[in-house]
Every structure is written in structure tokens, then in C-alpha cells.
């Protein structure tokens, strides 16, 4: 099984040169620590920055400079700041090539749920609905099962949806999967995890085509 940081490391392998990338809160944020050698990407945070850099040095935090997770950040040379309408114009207008975000559930048709548990947790969708409705590449970063051990890869989402038919790729602590033709296609296994383990942890339709390689981290 992968750690959260290893999930981020595996997702970082999907980055392509000259992409603008939006990273969600949680595991996705860690992707920025694993950019492969020779790949140039620029990170967008939807509260209004392109060219987001690492956390500031202690004592150099600026209350006016945060990311969408409300963490203090820095700006890299060439960064820009903009208002929220411009920020989502970049997103809806497909000027940002990749979105990485977390999820509570993903369905085999690409539906995603990550913003609400009725009667229990209602924090709001933030920018997630705008992001999943428009991004051409959406990678979901999540654990394969929830805290009760239940699969998060389902035939149909049970929680209120964030977006429909939008997720194309999922990286979990157990596997890399592609979402197409109303099924989860198993692309890679985490080191030491068997196809049978993944089948057991996947409630939706899992397609296993030939030998499934182990991830290289």
C-alpha cells in the first residue's frame, strides 16, 4: 500500500511539460513536492494565484498570500495574482491542463462526490464543481477504501454529486485506474498489492486486462 505522499509521487509522474496545474486540498497538495526532473509546470490556486511556490520560511508568512487551502505560501518569479472571476475563467476556459483533487466516492461512469454528507458534514463545494465540470484531465487522489473499510470506487455514487462523467484517472493507495466505458480499468498495482486485493476493495466494475504492472516510484 502507498502512503499519501507516495500517491502524490505517483501522480507527479503524470505531469507534462508546460502544463498549468490546479492541486486540491490534502494529498493533491503534496504533488508539488515530487515534480519530475526536466518537467516545468506552474501551479494555480483558485483563490487567485498562478506561479504558487513553496511555504514561506518561518517568520516570512504574509497574511495576504495564501492558497485555496488557506495555507501561507510564496509566489515564484513570474507569478501573477488575479480576482476570483478571472481565476475561474482560466479553469472553465480550459487554460489549466490538469486538476488533481480528492474524493469521498467515484463512480465507474466518472461521477465524483466530495462535498457533502447529508445531515453530517456540509462544508460546501468551494471550487470543486467548477473544476470538475471543465478540466480535461482530472486525476482523483484518494485512499481506495474509507475509514470503515468500504470501497470508494462504486458502480454509482451514494453521496451528493460534485460532477458527472468527469473523472478520467484515479490514483489510490492500491492502484492506478483509468475510468472509461463505464468501468474502472486497472493500469498499475501498488508494490506488494495483488490484483485480487484490488478486486476485493473495488465495489464497481473492475476491468483487468492481462498482466498488471507494479508502479515504479
Amino acid at each position: 500500500m502507498l502512503s499519501k505522499d507516495q500517491i502524490a509521487q505517483r501522480i507527479a509522474q503524470e505531469l507534462q511539460n508546460n502544463w498549468y496545474v490546479n492541486l486540491g486540498i490534502g494529498i493533491p497538495t503534496l504533488v508539488a513536492n515530487h515534480i519530475p526532473e526536466g518537467i516545468d509546470v506552474e501551479f494555480q490556486s483558485e483563490n487567485g494565484i498562478l506561479g504558487m511556490g513553496p511555504f514561506p520560511f518561518e517568520g516570512e508568512e504574509d497574511a495576504d498570500l495564501i492558497n485555496a487551502g488557506k495555507q501561507t505560501i510564496t509566489a515564484l518569479p513570474g507569478a501573477t495574482y488575479f480576482d476570483s472571476a478571472t481565476s475561474f475563467a482560466m479553469i472553465r476556459g480550459k487554460h489549466v491542463q490538469l486538476t488533481v483533487l480528492g474524493a469521498m466516492e467515484v463512480a465507474q461512469n466518472g461521477d465524483i462526490a466530495n462535498w457533502k454528507i447529508p445531515g453530517r458534514m456540509v462544508k460546501g463545494m468551494g471550487g470543486a464543481m467548477d473544476l470538475v465540470a471543465s478540466a480535461e484531465n482530472i486525476i482523483v487522489a484518494m485512499m481506495h477504501t474509507n475509514k470503515r473499510g468500504e470501497s470508494k470506487l462504486l458502480e454509482k455514487c451514494s453521496l451528493p454529486l460534485t460532477g458527472v462523467n468527469c473523472v478520467t484517472r484515479i490514483v489510490t493507495n492500491m492502484a492506478v485506474l483509468e475510468v472509461k466505458d463505464n468501468a474502472f480499468y486497472l493500469i498499475e498495482r501498488a508494490p506488494g498489492v495483488s490484483v485480487a486485493d484490488i478486486e476485493a476493495a473495488t465495489a464497481g466494475t473492475l476491468v483487468v486486462d492481462g498482466d498488471v504492472p507494479e508502479m515504479k516510484l
Binding site: E58, A63, K70
Partner: peptide
């Protein structure tokens, strides 16, 4: 100008 989540790195 409160900060909700102070996140830093060490020098």
C-alpha cells in the same frame, strides 16, 4: 489580518 493556517518551511 489573521492567518487561518500558518504553514512554513525551515531554512
Amino acid at each position: 489580518k489573521r492567518i487561518e493556517r500558518v504553514t512554513t518551511r525551515s531554512k
